[in-house]
């Protein structure tokens, strides 16, 4: 499987980019889905794209801390203003999908992310 970049995910899953659009060349090496920040801190891996429906700015800190490739907010929700601002500052990519976690994970997996 060739390298997969964030921009590939944005195109394939029709994601909207809320923050960090200058960082879409980052490569994605895996996926992690969780809505519990402590779980993500403990168990996600560097380069993972993180699927969550949390909107709070803490998600940016977690993604930054674990060197995640980016965040996909699911279920058609939009990040809070403070989250977008913080993500811009720290260069964290925040994307949104109208689909729930289950299908976003399914489609990413189908693309080859984390396989």
């Amino acid at each position: 499987m060739s390298e997969i970049k964030l921009v590939d995910l944005v195109q394939a899953l029709d994601l909207t980019v809320s923050a960090g659009s200058q960082e879409l060349e980052k490569s994605v090496t895996g996926g992690y889905a969780s809505d519990l920040l402590s779980d993500v801190i403990a168990n996600s891996k560097e380069g993972d794209v993180w699927l969550t429906l949390q909107l709070h700015q803490n998600i940016v800190a977690v993604a930054f801390l674990n060197n995640l490739a980016g965040i996909i907010i699911v279920n058609g929700r939009q990040p809070e203003e403070a989250t977008i601002q913080k993500a811009q500052e720290q260069g964290v990519v925040v994307m949104c999908s109208a689909f729930p976690t289950y299908e976003v994970a399914g489609r990413l997996y189908h693309l080859g992310v984390g396989r």
């Binding site: 809505d35 519990l36 920040l37 402590s38 949390q54 909107l55 809070e80």
Partner: peptide, 17 residues
Amino acid sequence: PGFSTAPEWIRDMGFGA
């Protein structure tokens, strides 16, 4: 929606979102 005063441990139980 999204406003919560629940502490972190409640959130870790899947509540307080």
